[in-house]
């Protein structure tokens, strides 16, 4: 066997190795498959049950309320447990970043944020939204690092400020480009009661330090 031939064989071996490694990386980097999208969408469009019939003192079906000043009766979630992905996280009530108008995800990546303007755990309609970091450049992996591994029928538990625990069952996991995600549907206050978990995912742009996509997990009371 000539030296030339040996060199050519070595080049082929190196080429095959390079292809294999690149292929493995490509497979490992596949986006999370979307499951249950139709069910998540149906939850949002379901008409809420009609309000209770008008109280006594009315004729026909005209609802009458006392014009008392409104009070706040929201039950904030305080703790989230997702055994399937090893998550136990403190839930903080958060709002909107005044500068960007975006969801104010807690800066500490091991904590997650509940959208305090939307429904709380007491709500009989609408989407309770909890978002958390997938990771951060400074702090590493976040509470929702493995959110994209959640699958249908996984269970999660949310503790409320009222001391009660509520269990939810995952029905959908979706991935959307941030420019296309139907946020109105996930921040809805109508439709069936549900819990929506959101984090980042998809390809990462190292220049802007942003992910392209959002991962959205939808769960219903178990």
């Amino acid at each position: 066997m000539t030296v030339r031939n040996r060199g050519a064989l070595a080049a082929m071996a190196a080429g095959a190795a390079a292809l294999t490694v690149a292929g493995l990386v490509a497979c490992a980097s596949r986006p999370a498959e979307t499951v249950g999208a139709a069910e998540a969408s149906a939850l949002a469009s379901a008409t809420p049950t009609p309000a209770a019939p008008a109280s006594a003192g009315t004729t026909g079906r005209v609802p009458v309320n006392t014009g008392t000043l409104p009070a706040d009766a929201t039950v904030p979630p305080t703790r989230l447990r997702v055994p399937a992905i090893g998550v136990t996280a403190t839930v903080n009530p958060v709002g909107v970043n005044a500068r960007t108008g975006e969801f104010d995800v807690p800066p500490s990546v091991d904590q997650v944020g509940w959208y305090r303007y939307g429904p709380g755990l007491e709500a009989t309609t609408g989407s309770v939204v909890i978002a958390g970091h997938v990771d951060s450049a400074e702090q590493g992996k976040g509470a929702f690092f493995r959110l994209r591994e959640l699958d249908r029928s996984d269970l999660l538990t949310v503790s409320g400020a009222d001391g009660r625990e509520r269990r939810y069952r995952v029905v959908a996991r979706e991935e959307y480009a941030k420019t296309k995600i139907p946020l109105d549907r996930y921040f809805a206050r109508d439709g069936r009661p549900r819990l929506t978990l959101i984090t980042c995912g998809g390809p990462f742009d190292p220049k802007t330090r942003h992910y392209r996509d959002n991962i959205v997990v939808t769960a219903v009371p178990a």
Partner: peptide
Amino acid sequence: APGGVPSGTGGQAGTGVQTWWYLLAGVGV
């Protein structure tokens, strides 16, 4: 709804295949 949900800056969970993996595959071929 809020304007978006920015929730990651680390890149450890990135699922896109970076350019240089394509280069590696190209060199392999």
